[in-house]
Amino acid sequence: ADVRLKSLDDAPRALRHGQEVEFFCGAAEVMAKVRLLESDTLAPGHEGWAQLALSRAVPLVKGDRFVIRQPSPSLTIGGGVVVNPHPGRKHRRKQPSVIAQLETAAHGTPEEIILQALDSPPPLEVGELLRKSGMPRETLLEALERLRTQGQVVPIGDKTLTDATLVTTPHAWQALVGQMTDLLRAYHQQYPARLGMPKEEVKSRLKMPARPFNEIIQQAAAEGAVASDEAALRLPSHTPHFRPDEQAKVDALLAAFRRSPYATPSVAECEQAVGSEVFNALVEQGRLVKVSAEVVFLAETYDEMVDRVVRFIKENGSITVAQVRDMFSASRKYALALMEHLDQRKVTRRVGDERVLR
C-alpha cells in the first residue's frame, strides 16, 4: 500500500527503510515492512511517503487511517493514511516523479488521478483502474465520462464503459502505436521478403497480455496504423520483396518448377538454391505450397492438381495413389505426399487403399 506516514514526536528512534513493524487498521493486524521512498530514515515528528509491504492481504481503501507499532518491546511509533491500497508494483525510491505521482494521488481531483494512472502504455481495464485508484465506482465512472467527452480519455474497442473496457489517453495511445510501428518498421528492414511480423512476437516484444493486445491491434488496424491478417502484422505500406541477388535466384528456382511441374525440386534443394529464409518467404507469400517435409509445388500447379483430383473422384467415386501418380506422370513420392496433404486438409478421406471426398 502507498501511504503518507508520520513518525510520532516521541518515537524512541528514527524509522528505518526496511524496518519490520506491526500494522493496525480497523480490525486488521498484520506484520509489514516499511519502504521509505524519500530517504533512508524518518526522524521522530517527521512525515513522508512510503510503501508498506503487508505480510498478507488486508481489505483497505483510500483514506483509511492506520497505526504502526514496533514488535518488541511493543510501542506505537507512527501512523498515517492510505493513499493507494493496490499500487501493483514497488516504486523506485528517491525519484521526484514518483513523489509527484503520490502527491497527485493524495490531493488531485478524480480526473487528475485517472490521467496520471493512464498516461503511459498499456491501456487499463476500467476495473483495474478502479482498483488502483481506490475511488468509489460512481466517482470514477463520472470522471471517466467527463474526460472522454473532453477527448482526454480514449476507450479501446467497446465504447461502453464497463469494468472490462480498456481505456487510455491520446498521448499514451500514440506512444503505444509508435512502439508498434517502430517494431514493424525494423522487422520489415530486417526481413523484407516476409509478409509481416508474427503477432505472438509483437505481443512478446510489447510485453502485453493476450486480451488487451488483441483489442489494441484491432483498434490500430481500424485507424490504418497497421495491417493485420490471421497470424502477422505489417505496416500498410509494406510490400514483400527480395533483394536483386535473391530475386535472380528465385527466378531460376521458379523456372525449374515450371520445367518439371509434377517432379519438383525437393525442399532441401530449394533451400540450397535460394536459402531457407527466401524459401520460407516464397511459401509464406503463397507462391509455393509445401505439402510435406520434402515435397513442394508451385501454387498454380498445386491448384491444378487438386482440381483434377477432386474432379476425378466426383466422376469415379474414388482415387488411388497409383491413379494420382499416373494422372500426373509423377513418382509415387509426389502422389502420396499430395494425397496425404489433402487428407490433412480434410478434402479427402482414406478408405483402404482409396481416397474419397469428405
Rank of each mutant, 00 (worst) to 15 (best):
S55I: 05
I99F: 07
I114W: 00
K132W: 06
I68R: 00
G127M: 10
Q51E: 02
T76S: 02
L102S: 01
L75I: 08
S74K: 15
P85R: 09
P121A: 07
A106R: 15
R137D: 06
G63S: 13
R131K: 15
P85C: 12
G63F: 12
T104I: 15
V126R: 10
R137C: 02
S74R: 15
S97M: 10
P59N: 13
G127D: 03
A100M: 13
P59K: 15
P123Q: 10
L75G: 03
G78A: 03
P136S: 07
I113H: 00
R137P: 04
A50I: 07
V82N: 00
S74E: 09
A50N: 01
L129A: 06
S97C: 03
V61Y: 02
Q70S: 09
K94I: 13
M135W: 03
L130E: 08
D119L: 07
P96S: 09
L124K: 14
E125M: 14
L75Q: 13
H107T: 15
P122K: 06
L115H: 05
R92I: 12
A106S: 11
M135Q: 13
P123T: 12
H107Y: 13
G127A: 10
P71R: 15
A100N: 11
R56M: 12
I114M: 08
P71Q: 07
V98L: 09
T76Y: 01
L130W: 08
I114E: 02
G80S: 09
S72R: 15
P110V: 14
N84R: 14
G79E: 01
V58G: 00
Q70D: 04
I114Q: 01
L130H: 11
A105K: 05
Q116G: 08
P71N: 05
M135A: 05
I68F: 00
D64A: 11
A100F: 03
P85H: 10
Q70M: 13
M135E: 07
I113Q: 08
A105E: 10
I114N: 02
V83S: 04
E111W: 04
Q95S: 09
R56V: 04
D119N: 15
L130T: 07
P71E: 05
P96L: 13
Q51M: 03
P121K: 12
P87D: 05
L52R: 01
R131L: 15
V98Q: 03
R93K: 15
G134E: 03
I77S: 01
P136F: 07
G134F: 02
K132I: 13
A50T: 07
K94Q: 13
G88D: 09
A117G: 03
P71D: 04
R56D: 03
S55V: 06
L75K: 14
I99H: 04
A100W: 06
R89T: 09
A117F: 03
L54F: 02
E112R: 14
I99N: 08
L60C: 05
P123E: 06
E112W: 06
H86L: 13
Q51H: 03
G88E: 08
L60S: 01
V126F: 06
P73M: 11
P136N: 11
S72K: 14
V61T: 11
M135T: 08
P96Y: 08
